[in-house]
């Protein structure tokens, strides 16, 4: 069986699409459509693109309202759901906090100024009032001060959209990876029984056999201690885990919860996994061990 592999830089990472059991021409065509879709989503959802929906939301003033793309509306609503389910540990309203950290790294703000700026930004966020319409793709700003960054869910959401496109193209066996932090596996069992996916701690390694599921990973090894606690608006949280994996039927969920779980206890995580049918399992590495929930 031929396998076709494609790479594409987008969303500040590398997407890799692998297609099996299709004509080469058809796979090439699908690849173009998939990466075009990802680029299109980035243009709408990245806060670093001045014309995106998210950039324009971040510029809204008191009393303003804005029509959204359907996808923007959908991802914000999904983010609200996940925030509620994760006790506020997942939060898209932290763009200004990220800007403050970046300004400090660039030397624009001193450490003293950064600390004060974070306190002000957190206060502004707590006083902000943004409303998302439940019936139509609209957002309303009563009081600005909360600024969106979809970095912790955007790639997962993009994979959910890719899934819809591949369904439309009737391609049944493929995987797509967004920077290896979120990977969706889809397979026709008669073509490929399962995809393999290795996970490891410092001393253990395990190869998983996966079908029709998305797995997201988050950790402190590659990106340093990047876990920011949106509940406090500070980055002094020391994670309990070295690495977290979340498998879900919804790629947005796996992406978002892989970050959110870093800030929760095992008991809280077990409860969320047990109560949420979209999350199939989570795993974490701690002190060299690999552990699964459930």
């Amino acid at each position: 069986m031929e396998t076709y592999r494609y790479e594409h830089a987008a969303m500040a990472t590398e997407f890799v699409l692998t297609i099996k059991n299709e004509e080469e021409d058809y796979a090439n065509n699908a690849c173009q459509q998939v990466f075009d879709l990802v680029d299109n989503l980035e243009n709408r959802l990245s806060r670093f693109i001045a014309d995106s929906d998210i950039s324009r939301i971040n510029r809204m003033k008191a009393g303003e309202q804005m029509a959204l793309d359907f996808e923007t509306w959908e991802i914000i609503r999904k983010s609200i759901d996940i925030s509620a389910l994760s006790y506020g540990t997942f939060d898209i309203g932290v763009a200004k906090h990220m800007d403050v950290f970046r300004a400090a790294k660039q030397g624009i703000l001193t450490e003293f100024e950064m600390t004060n700026a974070l306190a002000k930004v957190q206060e502004q966020k707590q006083n902000a009032r943004l409303f998302v319409d439940p019936d139509k793709p609209m957002i309303y700003c009563v009081e600005p001060g909360m600024y969106f960054d979809l970095g912790a869910i955007g790639k997962g959401y993009a994979l959910d959209q890719v899934k819809k496109l591949m369904l439309d193209l009737e391609i049944e066996t493929y995987s797509i990876s967004a920077g290896e932090s979120t990977i969706h596996f889809e397979n026709d069992h008669t073509v490929l029984p399962f995809w393999t996916y290795p996970i490891s701690s410092k001393t253990k390694q395990k190869t998983l056999e996966l079908s029709n599921v998305t797995v997201s990973a988050s950790g402190t090894y590659f990106q340093g201690n990047h876990i920011f606690d949106p509940r406090k608006g500070s980055n002094d949280f020391l994670p309990e885990f070295d690495r977290v994996w979340v498998a879900a039927t919804d790629a947005g969920y796996s992406d978002a919860f892989s970050t959110a779980f870093f800030l929760l206890s095992i008991e809280e995580i077990e409860q969320i996994v047990a109560e949420n049918e979209k999350i199939i399992w989570m795993a974490y590495s701690k002190d060299g061990t690999l552990n699964f929930v459930p």
Binding site: G63, Q65, I76, R77, S79, I80, D81, S83, A84, L85, G88, D91, I92, G93, K125, Q126, N127, A128, R129, L130, F131, V132, D133, P134, D135, M138, Y140, V142, E143, G145, M146, P230
Partner: peptide, 23 residues
């Protein structure tokens, strides 16, 4: 819509589902 409202009453402190009456 029912599912959406059920799980999305509030987000942190400042992002909510709704259409504020005043605007």
């Amino acid at each position: 819509r029912r599912d959406f409202l059920k799980t999305s009453a509030i987000f942190g402190t400042g992002l909510m589902i709704g259409n504020p009456f005043s605007i």
